[in-house]
Design a binder for these strands. Structure first.
Lengths: 235, 235
DNA sequence: GAATTGTGAATCGTTGACAATCCATATTTT
DNA sequence: AAAATATGGATTGTCAACGATTCACAATTC
């Protein structure tokens, strides 16, 4: 076909492979996770449709997908609202995330290669260096990269999708600043314990180290006592 | 086919509390998981809309939600198809399910009460009895009830939702008969190991027992070599 | 006869319009 | 004046219709 001509990676090409509602989905997801809108904020169909230059149909379809993924709440005859994550919800999500991340490490321990191990060690070193200079804004992305590298290397895309979904939902729990807040030196010590278990090819130890690490992260976040705590009725 | 158009049984009142697309979602989900349709089967918008007596709008919204949950595949300008689960996909799902179910047991071990323990023991006894009579059709629902009881008792609805989603997706992998196929006496022995760990309030042991149990279930299913094995391009 | 091209029916993607519902404000009632 | 009730505007839920794309099958070409 036109393997020689592909000068348009822009919107036209995207529209060929993905339907409109999928594009709208990604855009609204960006808006939600961007954090500019407050929690419990209303998502106006007409306003969003006009903003993207489409009709309300694709927007409504995107809403349903966002609802299925737990990012928005649908109230009949009222519309779509950014999902509100209570403290109780956040605890639940952290516990599942601990189990999923632990499972990723367990699976990775059975198949990790030298290259991946080297990359993880390199990240450890960089995080240690940044921790010394106490540069929080530099530590944060490295921390994410470390966890993502593990999840993406465990050879299970289903697990990876679930993991990143959980992380997205936690983003809705406005309690950041705490992730960096309490002691990230100890955090990196926990990272080292994980990598050591991976290096030892010890699945059980890898799970335990990873599970404990996320649980400590939960404690660090919850300690600060931020976020909404009201508990709406279950669906 | 069905000249008597009454596919929605008295659930018109549900429409008050839930939107139409949510009802359609549940109906299509039932159709998919019912198993009457083969894998990779096309879901016709117009046909489904007429079957439910609505227009195509709500049906398309339901499709998006089903797609987000991994039950249908959306192909641009082609429509919605029942998601095809390859053997490779099934392995991934089993591994995640093992980790999630293990996490449920781990959490439950920290909070289980006498009543729940008694219920689980009662189920164990019933499954043993059924195993003696080799009544597979009676064993299967008890097996499901056992796992569901654990997941629903661990006090984490987020985890429960993810778990049942994974189970649903595994249903798309047409390889049943195998779940019962190879030795369900050993399966119940594994159940006993889980309950023992729960009784001991030993989280780590509970996880290991549960994880190993699902992994053995995976082996039993995969051993039979059924299911589609073609591997479409990764997303 | 096999491959290619052309045609038409069927289906999908999107839109704009209409009815039903909800919300905020103004009006009435006690 | 406070509570209850009406009212108008805005928003959602659903539908039917239009253009665009795909698929199956017939006609044509080599």
């Amino acid at each position: 076909m036109n393997s020689n001509t592909e000068p348009l990676p822009s919107e036209l090409e995207v529209l060929r492979s993905s339907s409109m509602s999928q594009v709208i989905y990604k855009e609204i997801e960006k808006i939600i996770l961007g954090g500019t809108l407050g929690p419990d904020e209303k998502l106006n169909e007409k306003a969003l449709a006009e903003r993207f230059g489409v009709s309300r149909g694709p927007v409504r379809e995107a809403f349903q997908a966002l609802h299925a993924r737990g990012l928005v709440e649908m109230i009949p005859n009222r519309g779509a609202f950014i999902q509100r994550i209570t403290k109780h919800d956040a605890v639940e999500i952290y516990d599942v995330r601990a189990g999923v991340f632990g499972t990723a490490c367990r699976l990775l321990a059975e198949r990790i290669d030298k290259a991946t191990l080297a990359e993880l060690n390199a990240l450890l070193a960089r995080m240690d260096a940044v921790a010394l200079s106490r540069d929080l804004d530099s530590y944060y992305p490295l921390n994410i990269e470390f966890h993502s590298k593990i999840v993406n290397s465990c050879g299970n895309s289903t697990l990876a999708n679930i993991y990143f979904d959980l992380v997205s939902r936690l983003h809705l729990f406005r309690a950041r600043g705490l992730v960096h807040g309490g002691g990230f030196e100890s955090s990196n010590a926990e990272h080292r314990a994980i990598v050591k278990a991976l290096d030892d090819r010890d699945p059980a130890a890898a799970f335990e180290a990873a599970y404990a690490h996320v649980q400590r992260g939960k404690s660090r976040v919850m300690m600060s006592g931020e976020g909404p705590q009201s508990k709406p009725s279950a669906t």
